[in-house]
């Protein structure tokens, strides 16, 4: 059963040209197409991992799903019902059911709130329970994430370590009893030594409470471990999706292969026409309609940049790649 479904979801940011360009040269505005026709379906209790390099639109996707950003096109459905354009009480249920865990625990906790108030903020804002119950549940939640409430409830964020802060962030999401957790690189700002502890906590909570997750990371080794299915993104497009182990052990898409290291990215100096193979990947500003990896892809032909390939999503475990030259690549590879 599908819990959350993204249907050809796009997010474009307008880059307003300078005054001269806009008014005198009448240049149309450019768009950063941060996410382009992304379709995902997350099943009950499923953990879907999203991987990709910096700037590929992972956080933008999370923001759209958690209602912080309005999609340009496409639809988000929760248990079959579209949530876009809902107002008031209708959106309240969704707000509660889908909760985000933020990346940076140093930035995402209000410095003027005590931990118990940080945790209680969501239930209070949505008036989920009466004041007393909210307080009790928040304290119990702090206990559950490994911060004994007697000791931690009245502390302010600056009195906590990074790991403790992230536990508060997790508690503040879980106290809402969500059905979907969106975790945008929840470990990346933490010290390596405490990552395992937080990851264990997330897993334990998932096992106990049975929510579904969208887990974003660029660490494939963690994702291979945690996720049931894995989605690989590149410059706003989905490149490959499938069972996590499958994708990592047997990647199909040339980009996934490059990312995983099964096939090294070709030497940039030998193909001078291709920009940005090393260093930062470029931004998707007014990109051609087709595959965005095409300019860097050793197998690309003329049609690659022009045809967009949509993958079958569903909640199935089908392993697919958004590449129409898979057959040739396989032949070349073997």
């Amino acid at each position: 059963m599908v819990v959350l479904e993204l249907d050809r979801l796009s997010c474009h940011f307008e880059l307003t040209p300078g005054f001269v360009d806009r008014v005198i040269k009448r240049k149309p505005p450019s768009y950063i197409k941060a996410v382009e026709r992304l379709s995902i379906a997350i099943g009950e209790k499923e953990i879907l991992g999203i991987a990709g390099e910096s700037g590929c639109g992972k956080s933008t996707t999370c923001s759209m799903v958690s209602g912080l950003l309005d999609p340009t096109e496409g639809d988000i459905r929760f248990r079959g019902k579209s949530i876009l354009g809902l107002r008031g009480d209708a959106i309240k249920d969704y707000r509660r059911s889908v909760q985000m865990i933020f990346q940076d625990p140093y930035e995402s906790l209000n410095p003027r709130f005590r931990t118990v108030d940080i945790v209680a903020e969501g239930p209070r804002a949505l008036e989920l329970w009466d004041a007393n119950e909210i307080e009790q549940r928040s304290l119990a939640m702090l206990d559950a994430v490994g911060l004994p409430s007697g000791k931690y409830a009245e502390r302010f964020p600056h009195e906590l370590s990074g790991g403790e802060r992230q536990r508060v962030g997790i508690a503040s999401a879980l106290v809402m009893e969500p059905e979907v957790i969106i975790a945008d690189e929840p470990l990346s700002m933490l010290d390596v030594s405490i990552r395992a502890g937080i990851l264990d906590l997330l897993r334990e909570m998932q096992a106990e409470r049975g929510f579904s997750s969208l887990y974003v990371s660029h660490d494939l080794s963690i994702l291979g471990n945690v996720a049931d299915r894995l989605l690989i993104m590149y410059l706003g497009q989905a490149m490959e999706i499938g069972p996590a182990e499958e994708v990592i052990r047997n990647p199909k898409h040339p980009y996934t292969r490059a990312l995983i290291g099964a096939v090294p990215i070709p030497d940039p100096r030998s193909r001078r026409a291709i920009p940005n193979i090393r260093g930062d990947i470029s931004k998707p500003i007014d990109p051609p309609p087709g595959c965005r990896f095409a300019p860097r892809c050793p197998y690309a032909d003329a049609s690659c940049s022009n045809t967009f390939i949509e993958m079958e999503t569903g909640a199935g475990t089908l392993h697919q790649a958004a590449c129409h030259r898979l057959a040739e690549i396989d032949n070349a590879g073997s």
């Binding site: 958690s66 209602g67 912080l68 309240k92 707000r95 509660r96 909760q99 985000m100 933020f102 940076d104 930035e107 995402s108 906790l109 209000n110 410095p111 903020e121 969501g122 804002a125 949505l126 962030g169 503040s172 999401a173 809402m176």
Partner: peptide, 14 residues
């Protein structure tokens, strides 16, 4: 612009 405001929004604060 701070992230804790984003977090409050994500938690449902008006």
């Amino acid at each position: 612009q701070r992230q804790y405001i984003q977090m409050a929004k994500a938690r449902g604060a008006s």
